[in-house]
Design a binder for these strands. Structure first.
Length: 810
DNA sequence: AGCACGCCGACT
DNA sequence: GTCGGCGTGCTC
């Protein structure tokens, strides 16, 4: 007897695998996708082990292998295991990252009438039950989903369960149809004898005009014609073509049809650029490491100021990997996956670049994945999940803008960080990793200074204008300049700079970090923001209780009527959105053409491109927007960049608030002065002395880093410790709170019993989003070391979600 | 997730 | 009594 350990697609499975017996005649290998019985239904799973003995006495048989899904390699199985163990995520969901797009299929429930229901007295049934019985008879069975749509969830469920109890209906289960598969195309060719071709009229035209039209069209095309083209050109039906096939006049062939997201985008091929000395030495370090295959693969941190030519280093490193017969994966933040970025890679490696991201159709993702697996592409470029592309002979992984938080999956398990998983993959496969950023994450830079990563620096800008310096930044203290001119949002300095630029035909970017719309409390006069003493995060205002609450430790205090620092009664809740900014800008700078760029105004498919075109063709003067505009815009006409409130990010309840502010401001500042006219940047702030703002104004990473790392060390935040966020969600707020308190107590006694030192359990406190989809949420934060090991032994009732190394609101 | 089971309060 | 709501344990 042979056995298989299977990661099953069921929430019940969690991090365990389940033991199954393998039928004698079944070919099964490690990493194979299979279907297995699980409870009363059949589910998909992946074989993660082929042990000699099962883990339990009673096993059921593996139902079938799924032959069209290629088995996962040992490397990727080990990676999935690591993700599950480290991020405390269900094993199947970790394995599923590496399976072809659209693999997962839902299990559907059907309701069918039984024989017993034939001789039932209908008067003993209520209306809902009669409806369910009627529908389940119409075509043998009915999907429960359909009944829920008719009756609503509660009524459908109760009617069905009552009927089941009386034995009048039975339930059955079935996997949903595949959501995606390889597409084929029907091609049609004229079946003309070779000697007759050219004479045209040798084929007898019978059966009317339509048939003649089809034959004419096929005759005028040298090769096979795709069926949709033929149908559109002639208006013929499939039946008509079939009759021509039957008559032997037309031949139909089936062949694969590839959905290609880059088709028709023929970019002009580019050649490698000449490198500066620092670019060349960075490239040299990377390429020489790739020559010596090593386990684990080395990690480089490429720290290059904006416009220092990081991408050119990536491109040449990839070219070198390809010369060595290896392939590469390039990860970029979701927000940078613009056509321009992809084109830059596609132009250097014509027809050798695949893209993978969630905005592609499932069919496109599926086809790209299959083609990648066959080794068709030297380079895969994509967002977070592209890390798991089945790229054969992977030699180089590039993580561009490694500090970006879109690399962390937040919304669903596994809550992994693509950068950290990339490093693990390199460890397992021997690939080289290059992390690139103008403003490296504090944790990454710390590891580089400690020697875990090798630091490569690109200190000079490579701009079209020779030696163009980074633009000068003016820091304007809004407290002194409030309510100047027409608007509350513009200081005199910014107002003047914008007017001057518009008047001389230059362009302006006004930047507003909308996250400031959150309800922190700030004095309108002196800019004071009320913070928690213990946690040093800003307090959040709760209007129901009129309290200020710390979302880390649950410290509460009554909202003051006057500012605690300057005693001004004008304490207010800040937060102006981009829409308001657009209105005020239009009012303040009459005659200027204002464009808004944020997630609301860019819903449409080509809206990014349209806005970009408007700016490039000088049909707009002022661009107003959120973080989206901080990325990769290269507009030589922009001379003034204004940040409306540089502090907004500082006041979020997040220990990374200063880091994020510095990164964002540095990026925004990089948008100005890219053309021959130079440029300037203006930061409006209530905190002109804050180190993150000053360091960004001076374009000085080390100034920021040295202060920040000291602060992290003092407060024992990462990289000096590890964090985990545990959130419990429940419809009842009190129950939610008491469960969070219970878990905290349990973790405290557990850690004592297990002799684990250096662990602090913070909270519970209401989660940042206290109520989500009708459920209240309470949060407990754990700080310590090796948290995965500790937490894996803590039993978590349903309703808890764990986030290891959380980004954002902690 | 979904199902069965057991406990509880609100009704016939 | 019995129905429904809700928490809990189980799925190889």
């Amino acid at each position: 007897m042979r056995y298989a350990e299977v990661a099953v697609n069921s929430p019940a499975a969690q991090r365990r695998s389940f033991s199954y017996s393998v039928p004698a005649d079944m070919d099964i290998v490690l990493g194979q996708a299979v279907r297995v019985p699980f409870g009363s239904r059949v589910m998909e799973g992946v074989v993660v082990d082929l042990p000699e003995f099962p883990a339990v006495e009673q096993t059921r048989d593996v139902e079938a292998v799924i032959p069209e899904v290629p088995p996962l390699s040992l490397t990727y199985l080990a990676l999935a295991r690591w993700i599950a163990d480290y991020y405390l995520a269900p094993l199947f969901q970790c394995v599923a990252l590496m399976l072809p797009p659209g693999f997962e299929r839902k299990s559907l429930t059907f309701v069918a009438a039984t024989d017993k229901s034939q001789d039932i007295d209908p008067t003993t049934l209520n209306d809902d039950q009669l409806l369910v019985l009627g529908l389940s008879r119409t075509s043998g069975k009915v999907a429960l989903k359909h009944l829920v749509k008719e009756l609503g969830e509660k009524r459908a469920e109760s009617a069905v369960s009552q009927l089941v109890r009386r034995g009048l209906v039975s339930k059955s289960y079935q996997l949903a149809a595949a959501r995606v598969r390889a597409r084929t195309q029907t091609w049609l060719t004229l079946n003309e004898p070779a000697e007759a071709s050219g004479e045209g009229s040798t084929i007898p035209v019978r059966g009317g005009k339509r048939q003649a039209a089809v034959l004419d069209l096929l005759r005028s095309h040298p090769g096979p014609v795709p069926w949709p083209v033929l149908r559109q050109a002639t208006g013929c039906t499939k039946a008509l073509v079939n009759s021509l096939i039957d008559k032997g006049l037309v031949v139909s062939t089936e062949s694969a049809w590839v959905r290609d997201p880059l088709s028709g985008r023929g970019a002009r091929p580019t050649t490698p650029l000449r490198l500066t000395a620092s670019q060349a030495s960075a490239l040299q370090a990377i390429t020489s490491s790739m020559c010596q295959a090593r386990h684990p693969g080395p990690v480089f941190l490429l720290h290059g100021v904006t416009a220092s030519g990081k991408t050119e280093v990536y491109l040449q490193a990839l070219a070198d990997a390809i010369r060595q017969g290896k392939r590469g994966i390039v990860l970029v933040p979701e927000i940078s996956l613009t056509p321009q970025t992809i084109e830059r890679f596609a132009a250097r490696f014509p027809n050798q670049v695949a893209v993978l991201h969630s905005h592609l159709s499932l069919g496109e993702q599926f086809d790209e994945w299959q083609r990648i697996r066959t080794g068709e592409f030297d380079v895969v470029i994509g967002a977070r999940s592209a890390l798991f592309a089945p790229q054969p002979n992977l030699g180089l992984i590039i993580v561009d803008e490694e500090h970006e938080w879109t690399y962390k999956q937040q919304d669903k398990a596994p809550r992994y960080h693509a950068r950290d998983v990339a490093i693990k993959l390199a460890q397992l496969s021997g690939a080289t990793v290059v992390l690139g950023s103008a403003t490296p994450g504090v944790e990454s830079y710390f590891r580089a200074t400690r020697g875990d990563y090798r630091l490569l620096s690109l200190p000079e800008r490579v701009t079209p204008v020779e030696n163009a310096p980074l633009p000068p930044v003016r820091v304007v203290d809004i407290r002194g300049e409030l309510k100047s001119g027409n608007s509350e949002l513009f200081s005199q300095t910014l107002s003047q700079a914008v007017s001057d630029a518009v008047a001389s035909g230059e362009q302006v970017i006004l930047f507003l970090n909308r996250r400031g719309a959150s309800t922190f409390v700030q004095c309108r006069k002196c800019g004071f923001v009320i913070r928690c003493r213990r946690c040093d995060v800003s307090l959040t205002y709760h209007s129901v209780s009129d309290n200020l609450v710390c979302h880390l430790c649950n410290y509460r205090t009554r909202a003051p009527a006057v500012c605690p620092r300057c005693h001004n009664p004008g304490i207010k809740f800040l937060g102006a959105g981009t829409q308001k900014l657009e209105e005020e800008t239009t009012r303040a700078f009459a005659g200027a053409r204002v464009l808004r760029w944020d997630s609301d105004s860019t819903k449409g498919r080509d809206s990014h491109q349209k806005i970009l075109n408007a700016l490039q063709t000088y049909s707009a003067d002022i661009l107003v927007g959120t973080q989206m505009i901080a990325k990769g815009l290269d507009l030589p006409l922009v001379t003034v960049v204004g940040v409306i409130n540089a502090d907004t990010g500082l006041n979020l309840p997040d220990f990374r608030a200063a880091e994020r502010t510095f990164q964002l401001l540095s990026q925004v500042a990089g948008r100005a002065g890219r053309g021959p006219r130079g440029g300037e940047v203006i930061f409006q702030t209530y905190n002109p002395g804050h180190f993150a703002i000053l360091a960004a104004a001076k374009h000085d990473y080390r100034l920021f880093y040295d202060r920040e790392i000291t602060y992290r060390r003092q407060l024992n935040y990462p990289p000096f410790s590890q964090l985990a966020s545990l959130i419990y969600a429940h419809t009842n707020d009190n129950y939610c709170r008491s469960e969070a308190e219970r878990l905290k107590r349990q973790m405290e006694t557990d850690s004592q019993a297990r002799g684990i030192a250096g662990l602090s359990i913070i909270g519970p406190a209401p989660a940042f989003i206290h109520r989500l989809r009708g459920r209240y949420r309470w949060q407990v934060v754990v700080r310590g070391n090796a948290l995965s090991d500790f937490l894996s032994e803590v039993p978590l009732p349903r309703g808890w979600t764990v986030d290891i190394d959380p980004m954002g609101l902690v």
